[in-house]
Design a binder for these strands. Structure first.
Lengths: 297, 297
DNA sequence: TCACCTTTGAAAGATATTTTCGGTTCGGTG
DNA sequence: CACCGAACCGAAAATATCTTTCAAAGGTGA
């Protein structure tokens, strides 16, 4: 029963134990060092390992051979692999909240992890039928107004910027008065989108209501599918709500979630209007090129 | 279309993407080979890899250096580690680009996956020392100016909003003239942050340069660590660059990446100023409460 | 077009690995 | 106790691999 080396993680230590009896004293010293600290040994050259174990290069090579490798070089590569595996094994230790005294590296890891989680949740919870309907509405719209305030306002602008780039007519409003004033102009065939995490931001609901009553197709992007904003929404796109912690305000994850939804809308629209969207994207890219100092070689 | 990139090999693929622009043609060939097949390349000697990529040993070594290793030997060890990880680790999860005729559900899944990847890459590539230094500068700053244009402008605003919420004095500028005008006011102890994916946006570099020359501590958040903007930056925070596809403009992933960096800055600052930040966050939360109708139906 | 700078690979130089080979140790034997 | 042979070991030579140098090729801007 011979095993294929390379795949099993702990096979090296086992192999050392098995073969130890047939090893000479100095070879055992080498094997021991290797089994004891794969990562450390992977960083050493033959000479280094020979010195560490108080033996010679020749012995190290002999040991490597006995362990089944063509030479020390290959043993070393295997050790590096082993070390990496070991390391990755103890990676998922980032389940706790961010603490005040977390080192900065942990903060990065935890934030990244949490945002990834948020994305996964959002994708899983998004109703693709509603999304498709919203895309259809956008594609056929004469004009599109997007309402959002605070952090959601930035998302609204993001969506607007993107839609403009593919030739749609879109405006973002963060001023409630102007938003309502503009909403009055909307009529059937137009689209109004409200972005609010809580779903209860009056300043955003109001323009959506007006748009709704004027016959526009209305979309709500919210984390609360049962909130007030949805009563005026033809289509509701639900963002995920992750628990809020003291150092990580809800705004952070809701933003991530909202942006994913907005990206989906954008790509959906771009797909459906590919004929015009593709050249438009290319054109806007071109137009920006001269704003960048040329650094490309 | 082009090649079907397998699952990205950890952060190496990301590093390759980030550094690709600053590579010469033949170095790119090498980098591509390495990123595409870490396991295969780990089995090759310098000469072998040089032949495989149709280049010379010298070029291979140069590439290894650029990727951050002292030489090819070390790159090779890293590759072996990567290969082992990849093999034992999770399923390949191969993704193809978003196609024009992808059903909407696929679009959601692919976008979510790619953004998650972007987050992981960003976290892996972020220099925590630089991040820590930037946080320290922010904590001690009299005032902070943030420059960003287009999509990056929204990120700038996001950062500003957050910093304001914990009591720091911060302004976002997307008007180049006003940005410069304000930059002149900055002096030692102040902080200026430039956000630009390409690193070559003149309108953002200019105010940073002015701030730099007036003695402010300057930070650049960019996807191109070797771009012009970095010459005026005391601290450089690198965002990840994922490959751009027709339906997924670079702006999308760079935004995700930038936001993570910005969040890290924010949380870092909040940690260090916990005594004042915590009540400030609570207060702003309170202040908003009455803007939300309490109707949870 | 020319001058200048970048990129590149061939080959020299430096390291690391493998092999060779002779000395040493140890156990047995006369 | 001296001797012998086999296994063990490491110094150093031989080889393979990696790194550096340098000059030619290729490109760029004036």
């Amino acid at each position: 029963m011979k095993e294929i080396f390379g795949s099993p993680g702990g096979s090296l230590a086992a192999k050392v134990r098995t073969l130890a009896p047939s090893m000479t004293r100095s070879m055992q010293r080498v094997a021991e060092a290797v089994a004891g600290d794969p990562a450390g040994c992977a960083a050493l050259t033959v000479t280094g390992l020979a010195e560490l174990t108080g033996t010679s290069e020749a012995t190290v090579v002999r040991t490597a051979r006995l362990l089944g490798y063509p030479g020390y070089r290959d043993l070393r590569l295997a050790l590096a692999g082993l070390a990496a595996q070991q390391q990755s094994g103890r990676a998922p230790a980032i389940t706790t909240d961010i603490a005040v005294d977390d080192p900065i590296a942990d903060v990065v890891a935890k934030l990244a992890y949490e945002e990834q989680q948020t994305l996964a949740d959002t994708a899983a919870g998004l109703d693709t039928a509603q999304l498709g309907a919203a895309v259809t509405a956008l594609v056929g719209a004469r004009r599109t107004d997007v309402y959002g305030i605070g952090a959601s306002g930035l998302v609204a602008q993001d969506l607007t910027q993107k839609l403009l780039r593919i030739g749609l007519i879109a405006h973002a409003h963060s001023d409630p008065h102007l938003a309502v004033t503009n909403a009055v102009q909307l009529r059937s065939g137009d689209v109004a989108i409200a972005i609010t995490h809580s779903g209860s931001t009056g300043d955003v609901i109001e323009p959506l209501r007006v748009a709704f009553e004027h016959g526009a197709t209305t979309v709500a992007i919210t984390g609360r599918p049962d909130s007030p904003v949805t009563q005026y929404a033809d289509h509701v796109l639900t963002t995920s709500t992750s628990r809020e912690t003291e150092l990580r305000p809800a705004a952070m994850s809701s933003r991530t979630s909202q942006l994913l939804v907005v990206d989906c809308l954008f790509v959906g629209v771009a797909q459906r209007t590919y004929e015009t969207a593709a050249p438009a994207l290319a054109a806007s890219y071109e137009a920006l090129a001269h704003r960048h100092r040329s650094t490309t070689r």
